[in-house]
Design a binder for these strands. Structure first.
Lengths: 108, 108
DNA sequence: ACTATATGTAGGATTTTTCCTACATATCAA
DNA sequence: TTGATATGTAGGAAAAATCCTACATATAGT
């Protein structure tokens, strides 16, 4: 229900890299993913578990391989969380523009 | 240059709550923020430091108070990071819709 | 059945995070 | 100046995250 484990999962660069690989190269078995890392295979497996618990990846067993695929839906809750801050940011830009307009009025 | 410390800062619920307070209630002195937490004031101060190092808040010294205000700009890099995943998500939805259309064709 | 492959789990060492209580610093007010 | 207020920093305990090397499990191929 909360976006909490999603934010926690995204805190690790290794896990964000895993998501990037799955996004750009599609679903892959765990071993092939692990090969890309300067880290032991079991450690990558742990990271995959964190992502899975956060709902960010799903696994499909194919023979003795486990293919992991991206599940982007939980990221949409991050986007939703971001919305009011984006509004705030735009508001600040608008305010700055207003200020610049005033300055132009003063000098022109 | 990297969004790394931003992602790390957002991992903590306490820090996200701080950002929410600053967003919804505007800039406030550290003490007033700390009062809202079930946590010691120095701990809140540490969280503010993490947010500050990530560029997510800025402080303005007013007398003996330090007013913290939201700096939303770094969050925009998170939004940018999110974009390709949003595309992926929409793509999956479109694919699902296509599948549903096919099913309707079959049965109707 | 036996061996090789693919992968998760256990147990533990190391590092990082989180949180606390004391203490230091700076400002305000009388 | 003296005392109260606002806040950061130091030092350390406790918890959590990270990463490793064995080991367990399950499947594939011979």
């Amino acid at each position: 229900m909360t976006a909490d484990p999603v934010f926690a999962a995204l805190a690790s660069p290794a896990r964000r890299e895993l998501l990037r690989l799955l996004l750009e190269e599609g679903a892959q078995p765990a071993g092939r993913l692990a090969d890309r890392f300067d880290m032991s295979r079991p450690s990558v497996s742990e990271h995959l578990k964190v992502l899975k618990d956060a709902g960010l990846v799903a696994e499909t067993r194919r023979g003795r391989e486990r293919h992991y695929r991206l599940e982007a839906e939980p990221l949409m809750s991050v986007r939703d969380w971001l919305v009011p801050y984006e509004r705030f940011w735009r508001g600040k830009l608008a305010g700055l523009r207003g200020l610049l307009d005033e300055m132009e009025d003063d000098h022109g």
